[in-house]
């Protein structure tokens, strides 16, 4: 043999799942929701998405190359996912410069300050979104009307989201049943013909993408299901106790960013727990905090805050919630 043979420790077979494949799988899963948004919001959706993705990629590349002096790894797709998710969390009439600030905060503060992919404690897209939400509350809470403003960008016709109507109305002593009349029906909520952030409107498109990710084994079902179940349970209890002052569970489930958050944001690998038990704790925490903010808090929507709060608990969950070892119970008992 003239060529030297290789020697390496076992195993000698490796699976074909790579970070790249996982990330592009998420992007693919987000496409149905993206198309629905383009249908309802038109050019606004296209512009916001393009600016968000391009600026996220650009900031990732520049920071890696010139600040961290490392080989840029934008092709791994994680910045693309962050850009897309950030766009999904913004109203489609948001001015371009705000989006760029959001991307800078998401990539720069949310991800790179901690050392890049894998080291960030908080979901970068949500860091960007919450930063914008607090810094630009007016622009961030003006929601274009679907279909009507398909050909407009920043000059779109706007109005409140279903959750906004509910929050506002309940504080004016109106009953939930009265308010439901002013809100689009469940079918509109389900299909996405409502006002809201670009990607959160259509529950069905998000669920389709989620099922794709489950089949491809990109995510496991534990986090989305635990969030949805806990939201249903919590709002269900409130609704049964006082149906006049509380919206029904189905409304909570289909409105706002719950589906987007539960399926795509909370399941972010880096910022979610490692064990199944931990995922349940994490998901239930998000569900409870979301409902608490929606029902008792000043903001109409609380998914972003709930996920960020629970992100902060992830290291703690990982430290104390351990998988059950093989043969361990026997040892202890």
């Amino acid at each position: 043999m003239d060529k030297l043979i290789t020697v390496s420790p076992s195993p000698h077979y490796y699976g074909d799942t790579t970070v790249k494949k996982l990330m592009y799988g998420v992007v693919f899963a987000l496409l149905p929701a993206f198309f629905v948004s383009v249908y309802f919001f038109g050019i606004g959706a296209l512009i916001v998405t393009a600016i968000s993705i391009l600026s996220c990629l650009a900031f990732e590349y520049l920071i890696q190359k010139y600040l961290m002096k490392a080989e840029p790894s934008i092709s791994d797709g994680s910045a693309l996912v962050t850009g897309l998710l950030l766009a999904f969390n913004l109203p489609t009439n948001l001015p371009w410069w705000i989006i760029i600030i959001g991307a800078l905060v998401a990539i720069g503060v949310g991800k790179m300050t901690f050392g890049g992919l894998g080291n960030n404690p908080f979901n970068p897209a949500l860091v960007g979104r919450v930063f914008l939400f607090i810094s630009f509350p007016v622009q961030m809470t003006s929601w274009p009307t679907p279909i009507a403003s398909r050909l407009q960008y920043t000059d779109a016709v706007t109005g409140p989201t279903p959750l906004g109507i509910m929050e506002e109305g309940l504080s004016q002593q109106e009953t939930a049943a009265q308010l439901m009349e002013q809100i689009p029906g469940y079918m509109e909520l389900f299909l996405g013909s409502i006002r809201g952030s670009m990607g959160e409107i259509s529950a069905i498109a998000l669920i389709v993408g989620g099922i794709y990710m489950l089949i491809r084994k990109i995510i496991t079902w534990h986090i989305p299901v635990s969030i949805i179940l806990s939201v249903l349970a919590f709002t269900g209890i409130l609704w049964l106790m006082n149906p006049y002052d509380n919206a029904d569970p189905l409304f909570h489930l289909l409105s706002g960013g719950l589906m987007l958050g539960a399926i795509y944001m909370a399941t972010d690998y880096v910022t979610s727990p490692m064990t199944i038990k931990g995922m349940w704790i994490f998901g239930i925490g998000i569900g409870v905090i979301t409902v608490a903010i929606r029902v008792f808090g000043a903001y109409p929507e609380g998914v972003s805050f709930a996920i960020l709060i629970m992100n902060a608990f992830v290291p703690l969950i990982n430290k104390y919630v351990k998988p059950k070892g093989f043969g361990e119970e026997v040892r202890n008992g």
Partner: peptide, 19 residues
């Protein structure tokens, strides 16, 4: 002279326990 190429984690302990 080298007789083979080691492809694995850079650690003397790992190599010496392997071969």
């Amino acid at each position: 002279p080298r007789t083979n190429i080691y492809d694995g984690t850079h650690s003397c302990t790992i190599i010496s326990s392997l071969y």
